[in-house]
């Protein structure tokens, strides 16, 4: 029972972050069919913002909000400056642009900060623990679950109740038709990038809180996780991204904890075997519809 509760909380906590990462990637993909390789760098931007703010007397929560907003601003700016000019050209041009943006941002961090890890401030509550069903559980994990679920609910209300949300869903389905009804292309695309960046920024707070540091290459793992989650869940669906995130997290947690010692080092091979098996039986991902 104790083991089960432990796995459940770890899985939900990691899954919540994976789900948000995947959602941030797929919201842009849904509209532009672009896998934004610079997505992980928005997490890096949030991290360095926290690092730069750490000497300031601001309360941690304010720093965290500023960091998340900076990720959203960076996402918005990359769309305006890098993606918009090549949008009409081709999808390949956009993909290459996203590689370029990713490399550029990483190199900027290398050059202007340092190739070495930098400490980011974490609040005291992140290192506290509580006992749940006999297990020592980090409060950070509980917070990650609560914040993510609240965000997912808020996001789904936005998508269903506001005209912008309805337009975003419509644009992910039939972009040209959405424009023919008067919804400006630039508006939905900007909105998608802002939401994407904001999700990355919020994930960053918890993701970086695990190690308490940021490096120029920090974005790679979140990008991969987000990508694999959307592939598992179905690239064409927002709910699929969320499902994929939780599935990937639970598979990971289960292998991390249950594989015997001598197989442990092959755990990624096991995880990807499961992913391949899922895709063999459901090539379009677990969630087929859009929504």
């Amino acid at each position: 029972m104790g083991d089960f509760t432990y796995l459940l909380i770890s899985g939900l906590s990691l899954g919540s972050l994976y789900a948000l990462m995947a959602l941030g990637l797929v919201i842009v993909y849904g509209i532009l069919r672009l896998v934004n390789f610079a997505y992980g760098e928005y997490i890096m931007v949030a991290g360095y913002t926290l690092f730069l703010l750490s000497p300031s007397p601001l309360p941690w929560l304010v720093m965290a909000v500023v960091a998340a907003v900076m990720a959203a601003v960076m996402s918005y700016l990359t769309e305006r400056i890098a993606f918009r000019p090549v949008r009409e050209k081709s999808l390949t041009a956009m993909l290459i642009t996203s590689f370029a943006v990713s490399t550029l941002l990483q190199n900027a961090a290398l050059l202007f900060v340092s190739p070495r890890a930098r400490v980011v401030p974490t609040p005291g509550i992140f290192s506290e623990t509580v006992i749940i069903a006999g297990n020592v559980t980090p409060v950070r994990e509980i917070l990650a679950i609560v914040v993510s679920v609240a965000l997912l609910i808020g996001f789904s209300i936005l998508l269903r109740k506001t005209i912008l949300g309805i337009a975003l869903r419509a644009a992910a389905d039939k972009f040209t038709m959405t424009r023919m009804l008067g919804v400006p292309a630039n508006l939905v695309i900007s909105a998608a990038f802002v939401i994407s960046g904001l999700l990355a920024g919020i994930v960053a707070i918890f993701w970086l809180g695990r190690t308490g540091s940021v490096t120029p290459g920090i974005g790679l793992t979140p990008l991969l996780v987000a990508f694999v989650s959307t592939v598992i869940g179905g690239m064409r669906s927002l709910s699929g991204a969320v499902v994929g995130g939780y599935v990937l997290a639970f598979v990971t947690i289960i292998f991390n904890n249950l594989l015997p010692g001598d197989l442990y080092e092959f755990r990624e091979a096991f995880i990807f075997t499961i992913v391949i098996l899922i895709l063999l039986f459901r090539p379009e991902g677990l969630v087929r519809g859009r929504g």
């Binding site: 005209i163 869903r169 389905d173």
Partner: peptide
């Protein structure tokens, strides 16, 4: 348009609401 281009995952109401976007 030719193939109607209905937003199939949106409700009928949401389709109409987008029609009134402008």
């Amino acid at each position: 348009p030719e193939d109607r281009e209905i937003f199939s995952d949106l409700t009928v109401e949401e389709n109409l609401r987008l029609g009134a976007y402008i």
